[in-house]
Design a protein around this nucleic acid. Sequence first.
DNA 1: TGAAATTTTTAGATTAGTCTAAATTATTTA
DNA 2: TAAATAATTTAGACTAATCTAAAAATTTCA
Lengths: 217, 217
Amino acid sequence: MNTLAEENYLKAIYHLTVNDGNAGTNSIASSLNTKASSVTDMLKKLADKALINYIPYQGVSLTASGQKVALGIIRRHRLWEYFLVEKLNFKWDEVHDLAEEMEHISSQQLIDRLDQFMGYPKHDPHGEPIPDCDGYFNHDELKLVSAAAINQTGVISGVCDHSPSFLQYLDKQELKIGSRITVTDIIDYDHSVTLQLNNKKIHISCEVANNILIANE
Amino acid sequence: MNTLAEENYLKAIYHLTVNDGNAGTNSIASSLNTKASSVTDMLKKLADKALINYIPYQGVSLTASGQKVALGIIRRHRLWEYFLVEKLNFKWDEVHDLAEEMEHISSQQLIDRLDQFMGYPKHDPHGEPIPDCDGYFNHDELKLVSAAAINQTGVISGVCDHSPSFLQYLDKQELKIGSRITVTDIIDYDHSVTLQLNNKKIHISCEVANNILIANE
DNA sequence: TGAAATTTTTAGATTAGTCTAAATTATTTA
DNA sequence: TAAATAATTTAGACTAATCTAAAAATTTCA
């Protein structure tokens, strides 16, 4: 099996490459709060284990087996988040760091039984899809609120920022996963957005609109 | 906080000293599958942190704060074992190694909510008492089957050996926690024991009788 | 296109935990 | 009670993961 440090590197590389395919040493270092020289050392180890494709000075990508490992970690992380929120009544802004610890318990049987116990949830509390035991998941067609047009309606289905302060702000505004909202106005000057939520008008900044995902209707 | 290795040492020292008060370097080494020299190194670290009383060549005992840490680990271990058996349908012979990993997730809040979620169980699946959040637990008055007299009746309330092979043997004999048994015969020659369980007579070896605990009626 | 800036790697050191082999202390027993 | 035996500690080395500082490669852009 892989060490804790190796798992954290694989997960970071997965998140950095899922959109643009290739990650650099510095971006990995900053996402793991470590130094570039430490990253270089680890990249060699991961390459020796055939978990990444690594060409010095050219960045890295995950191999098929590295991606499988990374998706396993992400599956565990999201299932534990779901467990913490749905079974132990944690709030969605409290579970990230805990799940970060729990995701490293590697028993496949444990995770599959946990999945069954919870009824095979499809999404974690932040709307992220949960990979199944083979690493597959539907990539939902979501759109940023900041990219929506006036009068567009949608259901909040995900958030990009998982920081407690952002999630607590959403709680205060009663913006949650599953809420149906309509974009009623977009201010040219600062790109801030006015939303209709039930009977309420809510005005959010461009930055906030940039971190909320809605499903098209 | 303490490292994983430190936690494992504290737990081992707790188990070795709970009856006889003092543990030697070699006994710690063999219970952790490591070498005496490694133990000596770690004992110095734990003594520096005031978690153990250590006098070179004289063995060790836990300090009050070391005991508190150890009981916290044991609480987590036993609660996870209960969770695995009662919620995820693992068998009692399958949970030890998994709980050994899970016990190192240190969030107090997680454990207290897990405890609440399960209804504050008093015993793990092997009958071991679960310390409360302050480290307290009732030390049940139990007796070994091997120490019982003929005609004595009791309820199986614990097992000393937690190995899968022993627990699977008990399953096969339908001897489980909660079963009421009566000692009907004790063979002088080999100290083996005959039990009455419901309508069934069961003959067990001295070794087995030495690992089953019953509560006096 | 070639110097400046940026990114990445290398070299050498550090820490936690472990090991083997040798030395030391404690215990047993003749 | 002194030698033999057993238990424990010390000395020195190793691995994984990290760091700082310096060197090398790549990219940028004037």
